[in-house]
Design a protein around this nucleic acid. Structure first.
Lengths: 225, 225
DNA sequence: TTTTAACCTGACCAAACGGTCAAGATAAAT
DNA sequence: ATTTATCTTGACCGTTTGGTCAGGTTAAAA
C-alpha cells in the first residue's frame, strides 16, 4: 500500500491541476473544494470508504457528481485527502502531550484536548474508526511510523515517571489505549450516548462534566489523583 | 424503524421456511446457515451494512450467491439476524453485572467478561461499532429499551454505592461509557493495537495483562482499588 | 477584442449491485 | 416406486456504482 502522505499539501491538493490562478478563479476552486471535502467527510464518516458513494457526496455538497470528479479525480483520492486532514488534527492534539511539566498536568491536558477534538470534529474520529475497523488498509504505514513513533516516545516518558515513583506501575500502552478509546468513544458512539441521554445530544455542561469525570478517573486510576 | 427483535428465534431463523425436516435435510440447512452467518459476520464487520456485498458473503461462505438468498431472503434480513446474535451475546456479558456482591467484585467481573467477549468475538463488536457509527438505524429501538433499561438500573445501583460511601462520587454514566469504550477498543481497534505491537496480535499473556491493567486503573480510579 | 485556460455538467459507459427465477438434483414421505 | 418437498445454481434483470467526455460557460491573459 502506498503511503498516506507522499507529497506536499499543495501538490496533493491541486493534483494535476493549476497552481496559479486569478483571484476569482482561485476563490471558486477553494470554495468548491471545501464544500466537497466537508460533504465527503460526513458521508465517509457515516458509511466508510466502500459504503460511501460519490453521488451522495455530490448531493450533500450540492454540486453535480461530475464536478466532484473534476476536483478530485477518484473516490480514493478524495478519501486519502480527508484522511490527511484527520491525521493533521490528531497531530495537533498529540502535540499537547509534551513532557515539560508535571505528569498529572500533562495527562490532563492530553485527555482534555482529545475530548475537545471528539466534540469539535466527531466526523474525523468516526472516519478514523471506519478506517481501523476495516483493517487500516490506507493508513497502516502512517500508524506504524508517525503514530507508533509518537506513542513509543510517550511510553518511554511514562516508564520514566513510574521509575521515579511519580506514577503507579501500570502498563503505559494499556493506559494510552484506554485514553484513545474513552475520548474517541464520545465521537464514535455519540449516537448511542445520545439515545441513553433520552435522545438528546449531550449539552455543553454535560460534556464538560463527562470530560472532568474521565480525567479524574484516569488520573486517580494511575496514582496521579 | 421496525424493532430488531419482533419474533421468536425459531420464527426468524426459519423465516418462511419449513420447521420440520428429516435429519439429513435439517443438518444440511443448519450447516449452510451457519456457514453463511459466519461469513456474513466477517464481511459486515469489515465493511458495515452498506459496504458489504452479498457476493462477497457468498464467496467467503463458499456457496453460490443465489444460495445466500435462498436461506436469507434479503441482505437486510441477514444483517438483522446477525445483529440479534450479537445482542444475545452482549446480554450474557451484561448478566454478569449482578448486585449481590461487593462493588469491586461486580465491576471487576463485568469488565473482565466484556474484555473476554472482545477477545472471543471481535467481529460482533466491530459490527456493533459500524451500526452505531452509522447512527443505529436498525437498533435504536433495542438500545433505547433493552440496553437503556439495563444501563439505567446499573446506574441506580452505583448511585446507591456512592451514597453509602462505597465508591467515589463519579458520574455512573461516564464510568460505564469508559468501560464500554475501553473493553470494546480491544476488538474494534484491534488492528491498530496489532500495529503498535510490532504487527503482531496480542498474545494471550499480553491480553491478560491488558485486562488486569484495565481493571486496576478503573477500580482505583473510582475509589474501589 | 481576441485568445487561452480553467470551470462546469448532462449524458453516457462498463462493471458491480441486490435480487429473481426456472429447471435440475436430492432426499423425505407416501 | 412414485410423489412431494426441499436444496441447488447458472443465467438473468433492473438499478446503482465509479468514472469519462464532449461541448458549453466564464474569467484571466495577451
Amino acid at each position: 500500500m502506498t503511503p498516506l502522505k507522499n507529497a506536499s499539501k499543495q501538490d496533493s491538493k491541486n493534483a494535476g491541476k493549476p497552481a496559479q490562478n486569478g483571484a476569482h478563479k482561485a476563490a471558486i476552486r477553494q470554495e468548491n473544494e471545501e464544500q466537497i471535502l466537508a460533504a465527503a467527510e460526513k458521508v465517509f464518516a457515516d458509511y466508510g470508504f466502500k459504503g460511501a458513494t460519490t453521488a451522495q457526496i455530490a448531493e450533500v455538497a450540492n454540486v453535480p457528481k461530475a464536478n466532484v470528479h473534476y476536483y478530485f479525480n477518484t473516490k480514493e483520492a478524495l478519501y486519502r485527502r480527508i484522511m490527511e486532514d484527520v491525521c493533521d488534527h490528531w497531530l495537533e492534539a498529540a502535540a499537547t502531550f509534551d513532557n515539560s511539566a508535571d505528569p498529572a498536568v500533562i495527562l490532563r491536558g492530553y485527555i482534555e484536548s482529545k475530548m475537545d477534538l471528539s466534540r469539535a470534529r466527531p466526523d474525523g474520529s468516526r472516519l478514523w474508526a471506519h478506517e481501523i475497523i476495516r483493517g487500516a488498509k490506507f493508513s497502516s504505514e502512517y500508524i506504524s511510523t508517525t503514530v507508533k513513533d509518537w506513542l513509543d516516545s510517550r511510553v518511554v516518558v511514562m516508564r520514566g515517571w513510574i521509575k521515579e515513583g511519580k506514577m503507579d506501575a501500570v502498563e503505559p500502552y494499556s493506559l494510552m489505549y484506554m485514553i484513545f478509546a474513552t475520548t474517541q468513544h464520545y465521537a464514535d458512539f455519540g449516537r448511542q450516548i445520545e439515545i441513553f441521554n433520552n435522545d438528546q445530544a449531550l449539552s455543553d455542561a454535560q460534556f464538560a462534566e463527562a470530560k472532568e469525570n474521565v480525567v479524574r478517573i484516569i488520573l486517580k486510576g494511575v496514582g496521579l489523583g
